[in-house]
């Protein structure tokens, strides 16, 4: 293990308490809503916010008593914070220079890093002349220039517009996989998190609510926040081996679970009917339309009832079903696309 940390930061009306381990070359993403404590955790790792309790161990050495300038940590800040009065080259050379390299050595190293980032021709340019993507690469080069064992990135894509974001995201993914230390990345964007992370740590109100690979988290969310992020309907109930009871409803699912259980299914697994459908499909109930909104090529329908549910239907179906808010509607979910797992 490279990073092993217990981070406790207490403030009036807020407590962050987080256990974090990150292996060599692993990218762990802290994902959570605004105010969950992600940035505070990052600042604590960097030494910019003191720990109330806990410890931070990097390669077996405790660093939590060291000031920020003596930690083997590189940080890519939100908005990058490139020094506006220095050229791209001098921004990257700043760290090595502070850590005892000669001016010539530091600049040589900086030039190499900028080369590797494909920014050789921008070496003498001031930060305000760089595009968002270029600035991000300079910021990454600057953080890597101090040869850190731990790399921290705070919302590295938030400052970019939607167009460049896609391209820069996959490029960042590639560059991060080339780094052999531990990486901790903070984001509130689920897509960034899914693409960039080897492992996700979801934080809400200062505590970890779920942890796992992006695939696990996307399939088996454990809180409403995570379910919303990955776009699933999620309910908590009681499994009896055959079905999972949620209030008055009983869901038949692919898996058989006994005891406290979650039920999750995608909005596209939900079918809507004006009248009670023939036969006896399972997972059927009557609700009332709450709202209708556009969702990609489809239309997302929110239905209230014994449980609130989101359903995706085609625009053609909207006209056919007469989906006006307040109208009663029948909801059914395919058992084959309903997943149950222990809570």
């Amino acid at each position: 293990m490279t990073l092993r940390a217990r981070i406790v930061v207490e403030r009036p009306a807020f407590r962050l308490d987080l256990d974090l381990t990150v292996g060599r070359g692993e990218v762990v993403t802290l994902l959570g809503p605004n105010g969950a404590g992600k940035t505070t955790a990052l600042r604590a790792l960097a030494g910019l916010t003191p720990l109330t309790e806990g410890s931070i161990e990097l390669d077996g050495v405790r660093i939590d008593r060291e000031p920020a300038e003596r930690r083997p940590v590189g940080v890519v800040f939100q908005d990058y914070l490139l020094f506006p009065h220095l050229s791209a080259l001098d921004n990257v050379a700043f760290g090595p220079r502070c850590r005892g390299r000669s001016k010539a050595e530091a600049r040589l190293l900086a030039r190499e890093l900028l080369d590797r980032m494909g920014l050789a021709e921008f070496a003498s340019v001031r930060p305000r002349r760089l595009s968002g993507g270029q600035a991000q690469r300079v910021a990454l080069a600057r953080a890597l220039a101090v040869e850190p064992r731990l790399l921290l990135l705070d919302e590295p894509l938030a400052a970019l517009d939607a167009h460049t974001r896609l391209e820069i995201r996959s490029e960042l993914r590639r560059r991060l996989s080339g780094f052999d230390g531990a990486t901790v990345l903070v984001t509130h964007d689920p897509l960034d998190a899914m693409v960039l992370a080897d492992r996700l740590v979801v934080i809400e109100n200062g505590a970890v609510v779920q942890e796992g690979t992006p695939t696990e988290i996307a399939r088996r969310p454990r809180t409403d926040y995570v379910a919303r992020l990955v776009g699933l309907n999620l309910y908590r109930g009681e499994g009896d081996g055959d079905r999972v009871r949620v209030g008055d409803l009983a869901f038949a699912a692919e898996e058989h679970v006994t005891g406290p259980a979650f039920v999750a299914f995608a909005p596209r697994a939900v079918a809507l009917y004006r009248a009670r459908p023939d036969g006896s499909p399972r997972n059927l109930w009557e609700g009332r339309i709450d709202g209708v909104e556009r969702h990609g090529d489809n239309v997302r329908v929110h239905v209230e009832g014994p449980v609130p549910v989101a359903a995706d239907v085609t625009p053609a179906a909207v006209a056919e079903l007469d989906l006006t808010p307040g109208r009663p509607i029948w909801v059914s979910v395919k058992a084959a696309e309903t997943h149950a797992y222990p809570a």
Binding site: G47, L48, V73, F77, L81, A145
Partner: peptide, 17 residues
């Protein structure tokens, strides 16, 4: 913006630097 000073600290700069 003190965040520039924090950025410099993470790069290994002492307070005087």
């Amino acid at each position: 913006d003190v965040r520039y000073e924090e950025a410099a600290a993470t790069l290994g700069a002492s307070r005087f630097t």
